[in-house]
Amino acid sequence: MKPMSGVSVTKGAGDAAPAADDLVVLSNVNKHFGALHVLQDIDLTIARGEVVVVIGPSGSGKSTLCRTINRLETIDSGAISIDGKPLPAEGRELARLRADVGMVFQSFNLFAHKTVLENVMLGQIKVRRTDKKAAEDKAHSLLDRVGVATQADKYPAQLSGGQQQRVAIARALAMDPKVILFDEPTSALDPEMINEVLEVMQQLARDGMTMVVVTHEMGFARSAANRVVFMADGKIVEEATPDQFFSNPRSDRAKDFLSKILHH
């Protein structure tokens, strides 16, 4: 498969050789949905400990970009590597890599037939082969950390959206991931529940977790991001620090986008 050789070739050619602390590297990634070219020549490097917020209008490809990083979406060409290893094809290797990449979904996707505690224990026991007691202790402490310790024995459907999303974050954290991908984590939440989730994410960012966050929450981007990536029509249009981006966007597309969301 082509992408396998991508990294070493790039290294050999000497252009953009991944530095030691580059955790996620996408180079020249392209993807089509039928005739729609959703990702166009995407180059993006995420350093260890970095919080990258991806924003942009609907349909700009930002969720797709997020999902390609753990291969929930396949790519047509280009290369993606995580911690120096190219993303493997479907199989055992890919499963192992996914265990190191946490994912938080827009619609929470907690396992509906399992309790909150079981949701947080499952990956530890079945993938990490942790023993049950240790997994349970860790699950309890993570649930405590995200503020839903009292809900451990309930089923996901009995929790509010905000609580479910915090459990989903705990479930991702239980795997000790190298990076966590957040795919519009607050977009399905009632307004009053958005903050409780953002606070947990902000705390994670402060603790040094590497995060890729696709979101419409500009406040979070401003306060927690090291870097803002602005996407439109399948391309990365602009990359800047939050300050630069929000106070002085360079591209017209970004200016237009910001003027629509910030003035009302």
Partner: peptide
């Protein structure tokens, strides 16, 4: 829902 399988795969389950 397809999200259930996606979440499970994202955890690294086979």
């Amino acid at each position: 829902p397809v999200g259930q399988a996606e979440a499970a795969r994202a955890l690294g389950l086979s």
